[in-house]
Nucleic acid binder design. Structure first.
Length: 510
RNA sequence: CGGGGCGUGGCGCAGCCUGGUAGCGCACCUGCUUUGGGAGCAGGGAGUCGGAGGUUCAAAUCCUCUCGCCCCGACCA
């Protein structure tokens, strides 16, 4: 007898231990691994390809609205961070500081830092201050505005608690920074960027999000307004997946970003900043993954399909491989949303294990090609969004002609599934008792997956928000924009019972 | 930083309580047999047990310190 196969490729399952499942999925899918440096990660090719696809999509969207790329230093003079009070408070606690510029042989033969810097440099946790410094020099006249800048890069935040992709000490992102002559224009830009993020999440990542505005307590340090997209992970916690900030004139005043208007009056400019990061990859895993591994949405998938030659006899080797290569060529010539299909050929002779590798990696389509398919000029494929035993035979020409439709269908399925999950775990709650019950696990020692999004009334008082946060670890994720789904209506605050103009979304979050 | 759990070949784990220089499954390599599938048999490579110190004739096993990971809390764009 053979050893019985496990129920699922990933253990533990999501139900058994969600955080551990997440770690195992990332390992099994070969997306990334922990690095020797605390809190940092090595993003492996299969994970990085996802990021590259996100980069390509976002970059094109930004350029389409006139944003141009630039690059600013990773090091920021210490005093730059001191300029905006809220900003200092927000980031000072988590900055890596460079104090030396040389290493020398120490007494014990090891290397010790030497050459102390006159002024320490911080490794950017975000670049508002150093980019603002440039902006203050670039902006003279209203004719110079707007300035729309983006940079792709890395940032470092010395986090207390890290989780691969979701919160790492170093992560990759893009950060946009803009300068405008009027508040209205800056606010519009802030919103346009959020629209891009919504489109990215919904249409490319198949990740349903709720767009909205942050409560004052949850805003970016130094911002007048923070817009956000919030996604629901399969443990029903919220993931802030992208933010766009209207910075008002706060940074402009702090950094002297001024221009002369048409009336020869000197004015402070209005700025914005916005970002999405490699955190999205964690979101992807936790939105679509199942107990067999990752499931990649085709629009951003590292590869779209893998061809798995099935060779029984040596005599079949040549013909099968020829057929496979020809099929690979014709598939690579197919255009999928402006990109050639990404096709893998895996000719390893490792039996069924080979198939499971690709299941765990989440490739959307797996195609087996054996002698029988040659005879029938057919393919035999399975979709990652369906059971792994669910296989379909199809004429080769029909498959090649219909493959983009198949991929779009998978994309659609993933989105619908995730949306149904989000909706099933979103509830309107009207009493404090229900609210506390909703967010309190039944098992104390090892809490089960519980809660979700709660649509509840909030009076607007930060003290009510704070009470709920300290009692339950639940925060206001956003004041949602979508008035069709979340129509404002008066009610009573879930915490204090006073009048409330509208419901907001409460949830536990990453 | 506080509370809890854990660190043994690539992955998952046993051994530790009752000290005597390491074992299992998977993966990997070789051969044969298989082949629409998480194959079978045989052989093989790989770890000194997170790190440092201590106790001891002897430590993965006991003690101390330390690093890292996970969970809860604090904190967090």
């Amino acid at each position: 007898m053979t050893t019985p196969s496990p129920q699922s490729a990933i253990q533990p399952t999501r139900d058994e231990d969600y955080p551990e499942w997440y770690q195992q999925v990332i390992k099994a899918s070969d997306m990334a691994e922990n690095s020797p440096v605390r809190g940092c990660m090595v993003i492996k090719p299969w994970g990085f390809a996802l990021w590259e696809n996100i980069v390509r999509i976002v970059d094109a969207r930004l350029k389409a609205i006139g944003v141009r790329n630039a690059y600013f230093p990773i090091f920021i003079p210490l005093n730059f961070l001191e300029k905006e009070a809220q900003h200092v408070e927000g980031f000072a606690k988590e900055c890596a500081v460079v104090t030396h510029h040389r290493l020398e042989k120490g007494a014990d033969g090891g290397l010790v830092p030497a050459g102390e810097l006159t002024e320490p440099l911080i490794v950017r946790p975000t670049s508002e201050t150093i980019i603002g410094d440039s902006f203050s020099k670039w902006v003279k006249s209203y004719r110079d505005l707007p300035i729309l800048i983006n940079q792709w890069g890395n940032v470092v935040r010395w986090e207390m608690r890290t989780r691969i992709f979701l919160r790492t000490s170093e992560f990759l992102w893009h950060e946009g920074h803009t300068v405008h002559a009027t508040a209205e224009e800056a606010m519009r830009l802030t919103q346009s960027i959020l629209d891009i993020y919504v489109d990215l999440a919904e249409n490319c990542l198949a990740m349903p999000v709720i767009a909205g505005k942050k409560s004052p307590a949850e805003r970016f340090p130094g911002a007048d307004d923070t817009l956000t997209i919030e996604a629901m992970m399969q443990d029903r916690k919220a993931l802030q997946a992208g933010t766009s900030h209207f910075l008002g004139q706060n940074f402009a005043r702090a950094q002297q970003i001024k221009y002369q208007d048409a009336n020869e009056q000197e004015q402070f400019a209005w700025t914005t900043s916005w970002a999405v990061s490699t955190r999205l990859l964690g979101g992807l895993v936790m939105t679509h993954g199942d107990d067999d591994g990752v499931i990649l949405p085709p629009r951003v998938a590292s590869s779209h399909l893998v061809l798995l030659p099935v060779i029984r006899k040596a005599a079949d080797q040549g013909p099968v491989m020829e057929y496979v290569d020809a099929l690979a060529r014709s598939l690579r010539a197919v255009d999928y949303h402006g990109q050639p299909l990404r096709v893998e050929v895996d000719a390893r002779d490792t039996g069924g294990a080979r198939n499971w590798d690709w299941i765990k990696k989440g490739i959307p389509l797996r195609i087996e090609i054996g002698p029988r398919d040659l005879a029938k000029d057919a393919v035999f494929f399975s979709r990652r969004d369906r059971d792994h035993r669910d296989k379909t035979a199809m004429r080769r020409a029909e498959f090649v002609a219909g493959v983009t439709g198949l991929l779009d269908d998978i994309q659609q399925t993933l989105h619908s599934r995730a949306l149904a999950f989000q909706q099933a775990n979103t509830r309107s709650i009207d009493t404090e008792e229900d609210f506390y019950d909703y967010f309190t696990p039944k098992r104390i020692e090892r809490p089960e997956i519980h809660g979700g999004f709660a649509l509840a009334h909030w009076c607007g008082d930060a003290r009510c928000e704070e009470k709920i946060k300290s009692d339950l670890g639940v925060t206001i994720r956003c004041l949602p924009f979508d008035e069709d789904r979340f129509a404002p209506a008066p009610g009573k605050c879930i915490a204090c019972g006073r009048q409330s103009p509208r419901r907001v979304i409460f949830a536990k979050s990453y």
